[in-house]
Computed example of a mutant assay.
Amino acid sequence: MAEKRNIFLVGQWAPAKYDWSSIAELHLDFYDSDTEIERRTGADISWVFELEGEEGFRAREEKVIEELTEHMGIVLATGGGSVMSKESRNRLSARGVVVYLETTIDKQLARTQRDKRRPLIAEADDPRKVLEDLAEVRNPLYEEIADIVVRTDEQSAKVVVNEIIDKLGVNGLG
């Protein structure tokens, strides 16, 4: 990429579980908003949720997104609920190319079934219902701000990265 530009990854949790080391192909610094929150608090996301509730966590997430999107030349993987904040959606849209990593509920269930770090589904009686309810609210928000949509269900991180690179060029965004 000739110019440094930001790429923001949005979508439900499961796509974020990729090994994003292949993102280095883009020659941009990589950040994950959840990892950044954990680094700043010294605690994992589930503990922050337990102590501060979702509202406290979302306030931290909004602040991290505000700060990280001010950088140039980064890839930022956001948490699934980051789009719930209008301010975060506006920042992501205005400060870079937003890539919606789309995945099905079935694939999310398969990818998260042993993941105890996701507070909204870890203790749920019916994880499918929780994911369906979240998708109903969040998917339109992902679509609203997405410049690029990439289906991730059966693709490796490397294939997803290559598709993002291809679409950046095709859309004249790169």
Score class of each variant (00 low, 15 high):
79 G>R: 12
166 D>G: 08
154 E>T: 14
44 D>Y: 09
95 R>F: 05
68 L>Y: 06
148 I>M: 07
171 N>Q: 13
42 G>N: 08
3 E>Q: 13
70 E>S: 09
107 K>N: 14
57 F>D: 02
78 T>Y: 02
51 L>Y: 00
59 A>T: 10
89 R>L: 06
80 G>H: 10
11 G>K: 07
173 L>N: 06
136 E>T: 00
134 L>P: 03
86 K>D: 07
152 T>P: 10
162 N>F: 08
8 F>S: 03
9 L>Y: 04
15 P>N: 10
145 I>R: 10
67 E>C: 11
42 G>D: 03
165 I>P: 04
68 L>A: 04
105 I>R: 05
168 L>S: 02
89 R>Y: 00
162 N>E: 14
74 I>F: 06
70 E>F: 02
102 E>H: 14
1 M>N: 11
105 I>V: 15
94 A>S: 15
87 E>V: 12
149 V>C: 13
37 I>C: 11
2 A>G: 14
41 T>K: 10
151 R>T: 05
163 E>F: 07
157 A>F: 02
16 A>N: 04
77 A>S: 15
87 E>D: 14
115 D>T: 02
92 L>Q: 03
171 N>P: 01
97 V>L: 14
174 G>N: 07
125 D>K: 10
118 R>C: 05
32 D>F: 00
167 K>T: 03
106 D>Q: 08
111 R>C: 12
14 A>N: 09
15 P>R: 05
28 L>R: 13
37 I>Y: 04
36 E>R: 13
16 A>C: 07
31 Y>D: 02
112 T>G: 08
8 F>K: 02
99 V>L: 09
68 L>S: 06
121 I>R: 06
112 T>K: 05
18 Y>N: 15
37 I>A: 12
40 R>W: 08
141 L>S: 02
70 E>H: 09
129 K>Y: 00
17 K>M: 15
105 I>Y: 12
75 V>K: 04
36 E>T: 13
29 D>G: 02
7 I>M: 01
23 I>K: 07
45 I>T: 12
84 M>V: 05
70 E>D: 07
16 A>D: 00
79 G>P: 01
114 R>S: 10
27 H>R: 09
173 L>Y: 11
21 S>Q: 08
127 P>R: 04
168 L>M: 08
136 E>M: 00
112 T>R: 04
76 L>A: 09
150 V>D: 07
88 S>H: 03
146 A>Q: 03
102 E>M: 12
22 S>C: 13
163 E>A: 14
169 G>V: 09
138 R>A: 01
69 T>F: 00
105 I>P: 03
159 V>N: 10
112 T>Y: 04
18 Y>F: 15
56 G>S: 01
137 V>A: 12
145 I>F: 05
128 R>K: 12
95 R>D: 04
154 E>L: 14
31 Y>V: 02
10 V>K: 07
133 D>R: 13
66 E>H: 15
66 E>V: 03
94 A>W: 04
159 V>M: 13
43 A>E: 15
111 R>V: 06
120 L>R: 02
154 E>C: 12
135 A>N: 07
43 A>H: 13
104 T>R: 08
50 E>W: 01
163 E>H: 11
61 E>H: 03
21 S>M: 01
84 M>A: 09
19 D>W: 03
125 D>H: 09
3 E>R: 14
110 A>R: 07
125 D>V: 02
165 I>R: 15
